[in-house]
Design a protein around this nucleic acid. Sequence first.
DNA 1: CCATCACAAAGACACCTGTCCTTTCCGCAG
DNA 2: CTGCGGAAAGGACAGGTGTCTTTGTGATGG
Lengths: 220, 220
Amino acid sequence: MDLEKFAQHYLYKFPNEVIKELQLKTYQRNESILKTGNEIDGLYFLIEGQYYVSSIEITGRELLLRYCKKPAILGDIELIERCIIQSNCIAAETCEFLFIPLHTYKKYLQYDADFTQLILKGLAYKLKTCTISSRVNALSSVATRLAAYYCTLESVETSSEYIETRTLNEVASLIGTTKRHLNRILKKWSEEEIIVRNGDTLQILNWERIKQYSNDVRFE
Amino acid sequence: MDLEKFAQHYLYKFPNEVIKELQLKTYQRNESILKTGNEIDGLYFLIEGQYYVSSIEITGRELLLRYCKKPAILGDIELIERCIIQSNCIAAETCEFLFIPLHTYKKYLQYDADFTQLILKGLAYKLKTCTISSRVNALSSVATRLAAYYCTLESVETSSEYIETRTLNEVASLIGTTKRHLNRILKKWSEEEIIVRNGDTLQILNWERIKQYSNDVRFE
DNA sequence: CCATCACAAAGACACCTGTCCTTTCCGCAG
DNA sequence: CTGCGGAAAGGACAGGTGTCTTTGTGATGG
């Protein structure tokens, strides 16, 4: 049962009056969970699957902010800052969320000490990792970020040998660069026999080297 | 009285048993408030002055994360995540903090609903701005960041005409680049008659152009 | 006054990266 | 099979940026 999963990951037990208002929301791979600029409608607690967070630049480009595994909370910033949704959240694989509608939160949970602690920990964790990735991003090259992207995917994908390269364009915008430049890097890696490209897939022959290139950067 | 200032900025009134354990901490310009890697000893609430947050890179370089004005809370991440200090915090001018020792927080405030809300809002705000600056940093050039740095300083410095350029080396590391490159940019700006350099100071002749270069990026 | 030293500024170079354009490849209609 | 259109890959180029080295300048001590 989902409530058990929830309790297990979040170490919190909902009051009875809340339980009956909880919903289960499911998203398929690549489905949008939250969209920048919309109003937030409640809190989402990830109980299955993984999603990624990206943002749209002034330039129209996208930028991968992070990958999230459970436990992970969506909507907390927006709820507390009472602001519109700050980033795009997209399912990286089938995702299940326990959803608390806004009015339920306001009515029963906003001043619940344990629940607030839960949110607090989630926020502190996010802030810590955001700070880290902010610095790391600022100083790492595209090659590093690309390697980091693959390393991050490795833990997400089921088949770890082949990576489905979305479209190269998508990957490029996710890590904040251009397809042209990815081609350059992939070509170099091919020549170094670190990878093999076949059409839409890419096989990594030498994870060790990729990990070296990634310089321990991860989007999670 | 400081408690009034505090109440005014943070909209919170301490219980009496806490008040007698509060301390006032003052730091002079450039004095270190928190140092990466140390243990946190309590919560700091800024009630006067401004400070900046920077971090040390793997490469040994420094990177400016943000400037903070009141209201601003220090130590929250570390307290909640029970981790060592994540960033360096340095007074940009004389700063006064209301300080709550760790044990006081644990004894009286950890489960105080209103106080927790206060921390919660602080964290959500930080996270929001961190996310924004993370993207912005990832896509702006050194020239943009330098202009942004001056624009951020403008609101801090008393004399807005001349900017004391720390050492150029410091500025370079703060915005994550090298002195060499700053020299290039400053030379270019001199030629464009946007600035004038005289020894240790730098006069900005054309704030408009600087603001254009800054592209609305700010470290705050 | 000169020699020395330290540090700031600039030159030279190489690499990273984005833009623009050309080439190559592939599928499909005729 | 041929020719066409669109997408992917790659070439050429320019600008941004870091590193290393050289030059310039000002302070200090003899």
